[in-house]
């Protein structure tokens, strides 16, 4: 037996799920170690929620295998559910239930729950303890949903777009909470379409689009570039002739217009390269606006892989 099987929080191979003629996820492999944070990053409709719902046992995959804490999430859900915390997309509560009642109802299912009163306090829900769920704002409903996911002291939590609908302040709070979870050894599987959420918090990132995994790795791996693989971005007039630039650049450099007016030079970027680029712009009488040299951002990686904007 593979010793890894026991240590994995989530291990999935070849997950495929179709809804009618539409393939929501296709051949997805996934591995999450205990106490690790993995972000599924992708635009709306990429297959993130389907993947998470398969792991939670709400959906049975058409093909592939998944084990969560060593258990089959559908057939052994009764054993699995007490050990995981779930924050479904869009929350979930009785429409007429009061905030504190709902959290206490979920806490009553757990052997050793966290103090519901304390959780409401730290999540900034102290002032709405007696407010009916349907009258909470979207961000408040999200925070109550997060509290419900955490109250049972789970080993592993599934957070489906945890900061959707939250303002910057609440988002920072939730990020701090997620860091504390990871530090205490709780595994976190998170879906998001926010770059910084994936980049700054997660140990590893999987980029998903159209139900397929396009790339995976640590944020550093995905965005890495050694000295030979840096990028120079700038904006200028659309449609400049790249031929003379390519000729002037040193061997191994590439230049392209990724979007109209958005240029990218890759390869060995040194002061000489920058000078070559600006000189080429000058010959065209064009400015090099927002000139930036650096590693690729996850956004760049995503754009490159899919040809579309993540936040679309």
């Amino acid at each position: 037996m593979n010793p890894d099987v026991d240590s994995a929080a989530v291990r999935a191979r070849g997950l495929t799920k179709r809804f009618g003629g539409n393939t929501a996820v296709s051949e997805i492999d996934l591995h999450l170690a205990r106490g690790e944070m993995l972000a599924l990053l992708g635009p709306n409709g990429a297959g993130k929620t389907t993947t998470v719902e398969i792991c939670e046992g709400f959906l049975r995959p058409d093909a592939g295998q998944v084990r969560v804490l060593g258990l089959d999430p559908v057939d052994q859900s009764a054993r699995l559910r007490p050990r995981i915390g779930v924050m479904p997309q869009g929350g979930g509560a009785y429409p007429g239930v009061r905030t504190e009642e709902m959290l206490r109802l979920v806490a009553a299912c757990c052997a050793e729950p966290l103090d519901p009163s304390w959780l409401l306090d730290i999540l900034g829900l102290d002032g709405v303890r007696t407010t009916p769920y349907k009258r909470l704002s979207g961000g408040q409903q999200q925070r109550l949903s997060l509290a419900c996911a955490l109250v049972g002291r789970p080993e592993l939590v599934f957070l489906d777009e945890p900061t959707a609908g939250m303002d910057a302040h609440a988002r920072n709070l939730v990020w701090e909470l997620m860091s504390a979870l990871r530090a205490d050894g709780v595994g976190v599987l998170l879906t998001t379409h926010l770059m910084d959420e994936a980049e700054t918090l997660s140990d590893r990132v999987m980029i998903i689009d159209h139900g397929r995994v396009l790339a995976r790795g640590t944020p550093e791996e995905l965005t890495s570039g050694d000295e030979e693989h840096r990028e120079l971005h700038f904006r200028s007039r659309p449609g400049l002739d790249l031929e003379p630039l390519l000729t002037a650049l040193p061997e191994g450099c590439s230049a392209l217009e990724v979007r109209p007016g958005q240029y990218l030079v890759r390869g060995h970027i040194d002061p000489q390269t920058v000078s070559t680029v600006t000189a080429w712009c000058a010959r065209h009488g064009a400015m090099a606006d927002e000139l930036r040299i650096g590693r690729r951002s996850l956004e760049d990686v995503f754009l490159e892989l899919t040809g579309r904007e993540l936040r679309a």
Binding site: A111, E112, L114, G152, R153, P154, L181, D184, G185, V186
Partner: peptide, 8 residues
């Protein structure tokens, strides 16, 4: 948040 899950 040290894990300590269980069913009531």
């Amino acid at each position: 948040f040290r894990p300590s899950p269980g069913r009531a």
